[in-house]
Simulated assay, not measured.
Amino acid sequence: MSLQSKAAPVRFESVTKMFGKDVVAVDNIDLHVDAGKLVTLLGPSGCGKTTTLRMIAGLEMATSGKITIGDRDVTKLPATDRDVSMVFQSYALFPHMSVLENVKYGLTFSGFGKDEARSRALHGLDLVGLKGFDNRLPSELSGGQQQRVAVARALVLEPQVLLFDEPLSNLDAKLRRQVREDIRAIQQDLGLTVVYVTHDQEEALAVSDEIVVMRNAAIAQIGTPRQLYDAPNDRFVADFIGEANLLACQITSVDGEMASIEIEGYRHTLSSRGMSEGPATVAIRPSRLVIGIEQGIVATVAKATYVGVRMEYTLTGAFGQVFAVHDDVDAPLEPGTEVQMGFAEKGPVLLPE
């Protein structure tokens, strides 16, 4: 069973989805998903990500615009006529059927003979690491194993596009990490086109070739995980992709592509991102704050929390409040301690207004 050759790109051209006359669920978006890539739609509840996924599946119809899968216009096609498979949050397994019967279920409606359907279903279980589980019932499996059965059931249909709607939300933290690694490995091994919806930033960073950050029914920014983490377009993206401390600063000089900024006498040089001298905002990740430097920004430890592998600190000062993390768990700073903080050489980024 070869799925690699069937992977197809997905394209949205000026797509809008309205519910009734007043509710804009998706607002005039353009999106291109390359064949064989895993693209994640990420954003808070109500941002339009699930509606976008459902429009690819044909479970919602676009109000205007054009959707293509491969070179075929699917804008008005029902779900049954689109070559896509969807893995739901709830798994949607039949409790009275064996694992093999669950995986075979879609194949029996797709014109495959009994033997061919069985062969494909067994191969699908092998792909997701469940060889030998074919006669078990879903109730005899862990949550992670049930999720893999749902993935196998979608895979055996050899879809051009595989869709995931919050696939890990029912799993505990340890299982989530394992199953997301499984999904990513299967996607890469088979060269599948995958569109994946989540509101979990860490999950998106871990599995994606590209992330589409959505806000208020529109696309806020598209980029690789590293691009979005290191160079967010604005405050929303900076704060939504991982945690970010947003601090007011002054751009004191600009020299080509580099700018010098100042916060309470502390100076730092970073990319100017096309900005000019004057007041600005800098975003700095908790791990890129350096505590205990000379001639830094004066701060007080307001809160210290031990979380096993690191210390987490809330620091306050004239600048407001920031969140910092530190690897030294053996000599933690006590609340009330005055410190001086600065920025790691790489990491701080100016945010265009």
Results as ranks from 00 to 15, higher is better:
Tyr105Ala: 09
Ser85Met: 09
Glu277Ser: 05
Val84Met: 05
Ser5Cys: 03
Asp34Met: 07
Tyr313Gln: 09
Thr252Leu: 01
Gln321Val: 13
Pro352Gln: 13
Gly132Thr: 10
Ala117Val: 10
Pro335Val: 02
Phe112His: 13
Leu289Arg: 11
Val26Ser: 01
Ala117Phe: 01
Gln295Ala: 14
Asp81Tyr: 10
Leu59Met: 13
Ile251Lys: 03
Arg72Tyr: 01
Met214Val: 06
Val99Asn: 13
Pro348Leu: 04
Gln221Gly: 06
Thr52Gly: 02
Phe319Trp: 07
Ile186Val: 14
Val23Ser: 12
Arg273Phe: 09
Val151Arg: 01
Phe240Gly: 01
Val194Ile: 14
Cys47Ala: 12
Asp330Gln: 14
Ala62Met: 12
Val325Tyr: 10
Ile293Trp: 09
Arg310Trp: 00
Thr75Glu: 00
Gln146Val: 13
Val301Gly: 08
Ala35Phe: 12
Asp327Asn: 15
Val349Phe: 11
Gly278Cys: 10
Leu333Arg: 12
Leu192Ser: 05
Val33Glu: 06
Leu38Trp: 05
Ser139Met: 08
Phe319Glu: 10
Val26Thr: 08
Ala217Gln: 01
Val15Ile: 03
Arg11Ile: 11
Lys346Gly: 08
Thr52Lys: 11
Ile251His: 05
Gly191Leu: 02
Ala173Phe: 10
Val84Ser: 12
Ser169Phe: 10
Thr68Ile: 11
Ser45Cys: 08
Asp34Val: 08
Ala117Trp: 04
Gly296Pro: 06
Leu155Phe: 10
Asn102Gly: 03
Gly46Pro: 07
Ile222Lys: 13
Glu264Ala: 15
Ala217Gly: 02
Val15Thr: 05
Ile222Asn: 11
Asp200Cys: 03
Gln89Tyr: 13
Ala173Met: 14
His268Cys: 11
Gly111Thr: 08
Arg180Trp: 13
Val156Arg: 01
